[in-house]
Design a protein around this nucleic acid. Sequence first.
DNA 1: AGGTGATCGATTGTCAACAATCTTTCATCT
DNA 2: AGATGAAAGATTGTTGACAATCGATCACCT
Lengths: 272, 272
Amino acid sequence: MGRGMKEARLGGGDTRSVSQFARVPKSTFRAHIVDGLRQAILRGDMEPGSPLIEANLASQFGVSRGPLREAMRQLIDEGLLVTVPYTGTHVVDLSVEDVREIYSIRVNLEIFAFEQIWPRRDAQFRDGLVRRHEALTQCIDAQDDAASISAELELHGFVYEAAGHRILLKTWESIRGRLQLYWAAHHRAHGIRGPRRDGHDDYVRTALGDNFEDLRQEITGHMARGGSQTEAFLASRVQEPIAPPSLPSAANDAGTTAAAASRARELSKSVE
Amino acid sequence: MGRGMKEARLGGGDTRSVSQFARVPKSTFRAHIVDGLRQAILRGDMEPGSPLIEANLASQFGVSRGPLREAMRQLIDEGLLVTVPYTGTHVVDLSVEDVREIYSIRVNLEIFAFEQIWPRRDAQFRDGLVRRHEALTQCIDAQDDAASISAELELHGFVYEAAGHRILLKTWESIRGRLQLYWAAHHRAHGIRGPRRDGHDDYVRTALGDNFEDLRQEITGHMARGGSQTEAFLASRVQEPIAPPSLPSAANDAGTTAAAASRARELSKSVE
DNA sequence: AGGTGATCGATTGTCAACAATCTTTCATCT
DNA sequence: AGATGAAAGATTGTTGACAATCGATCACCT
């Protein structure tokens, strides 16, 4: 049926017309779907725990199941989806332990990022940081919570990008998705989100200052504040997945498949 | 064909099963191929930079291209393969910068791992560490270089497992592959590998001691030694790329997430 | 000769159908 | 009734064929 419609779809959905001489990204359906799906998940179009069925998503994206499966596989590796063979794939439902881990390793990674860039901080770095801080403040003033989440992630993410450390950046990106996912859920549940308007003033100030130790302490404290707030919220939920076995190397489990599947009620809304 | 095999890989997690009622064997061709391919790559069956063609591998594994593609996609995400759409997929060829990044972040992650487990070190931890250290020493004495590499990775990996931090562990695993890949190449090129027999004595001693600061310095020094040795090797070979002529270490990333990393990195330098 | 454009082979991307497996439902038995 | 087991429906896993793209080769034009 749709063999000949590929070109039209490809040209229509892409927004890369103004590149001066930038390498045109070789387009693949898979790449587009990864972006679209990730965006849909992070935007909260599908609640944590809700199932994703390949056939539906494939038709919604207008492609066949092949490319869609590969895209899903990538999001699984990113930690945004969890899957059980022959059974189903769901949006990840973060446990208290997960969020705790994210915050704890964030402290470590972000300090490492600053170690990398500390002697190389220049005007460009300063401007980038300040600009993103201002953007964040404006979003908070406008009480646009979704934008505030993105702006805060942009602010922190800028440090990772500026560090010029590819492995570090990739690690951050794999964490960022889940962090954003959690913040979105937190926001939906609590109505209002938490970042105070001056929550990042000290962060930016010490980041541009001359005392690394001050920055280290600020980051530690910053994360501790976010972490405790986070855990309080998660603890208030009754969900509480299975306690991991008391040993290291606890395999991650999406909880009992029956519970997860039956709990999944809201089917996927339109994704586009 | 036979479907009832073993080994299952849940998304993101490892194929570990613990309790007596562990989730069993749901088999997937993809899971088997991922393991087999990874093993082949790490074992050095295919040189860094050599191409992987889907049709050949598919017939070689006795499956169709679908599952094989998904398996390759996972190894791409792990950083063991690099791909260019419509063009080809190759075993990653690490650059000096890559190895430098690996070593630098290893210092950070391993110290973090010890921070996590430091107050919880018990007899089991001590035994595990000592046992792996002995295994490593034996491999070195036997002059079995391949086994030495695995043993050394087992020793360090044990710390990450014992930390009980899933994100940390996954990050380590994503690094471990490339590290092993590099060590194998190093070994093939130099004939003999480098770890002195007593190279880890101080490491294990401080890891089981009472002074965290000593351990921190030992790890930093340990990695610095490995790193400098590494860079000397890579620098010596920088003028002589491998057999495949038009090769890649310049722009080795796919149109997926890795592209974003490199793109962001370039952006931080260029104007905007 | 040097550059230019078409052609061919090889490889990856995509599709639609088929097979295996899981979950649920419902009839059956104790 | 409660448990047990078989059939049905739904979803994922797998396959082989087809289409799009890339790189190299070679004829052709200036």
